[in-house]
Design a protein around this nucleic acid. Structure first.
Length: 156
DNA sequence: GCCAACGTTGGC
DNA sequence: GCCAACGTTGGC
């Protein structure tokens, strides 16, 4: 029996990487490098090929779920942790025991009307979403099947 | 630009 | 193991 498909939300600042960048990327695919938070990394380790992702724009006006992407690789070592010239370089991480991993994600679709954070807050069904918790800063987070279904019902 | 909330570090 | 200090995230 195939494993159950799971759902996630990944944040990106559009000034560094937007959903349009993903759409225009080679094979509409990118590696999600630069994650330097253990909880977020652990969620990426849990990902399976085919898992679906809400692509969220943070630090922008308005912050919003822009569309959908999907997981196309399981987690593997993020080489930027060893790259002194990279802004995500981690001098504490050793090649023998790498700390940080990433997955590849592929563009699926872009909503014609993004779902703003403000709009999502108004939906009582979504009250429990990690994204909506006070002070929530996790850049990779789980989305429940119910939340996924409901968000897709709102999306255009 | 401000600042609250959070995660991490390091002294003790 | 506690917790103050610090750096970062991200909404506003």
């Amino acid at each position: 029996m195939p494993p159950t498909k799971r759902y996630w939300l990944m944040k990106s600042e559009p000034t560094s990487f937007s959903i349009n960048d993903l759409m225009k990327a080679p094979s509409q695919t990118t590696c999600w490098d630069g994650v330097r938070n253990y909880q977020a990394r652990n969620f990426m380790r849990d990902m399976a090929v085919g898992d679906q992702i809400l692509f969220y724009h943070s630090n922008t006006d308005p912050p919003a779920v822009m569309g959908i992407a999907e997981v196309v690789t399981t987690a593997y070592i993020d080489p930027t942790q060893f790259d002194k010239t990279d802004s995500h370089y981690d001098p504490e991480s050793k090649p023998a025991q790498p700390r940080w991993e990433m997955v590849d994600i592929k563009y699926v679709r872009k909503f014609s009307h993004p779902l703003s954070l403000d709009q999502l807050r108004k939906e009582s069904t979504l009250k429990g979403m990690v994204l909506l918790r006070k002070g929530s800063r996790l850049s990779v987070q789980p989305v429940s099947p119910l939340e996924w279904k409901y968000i897709l019902s709102l999306a255009r």
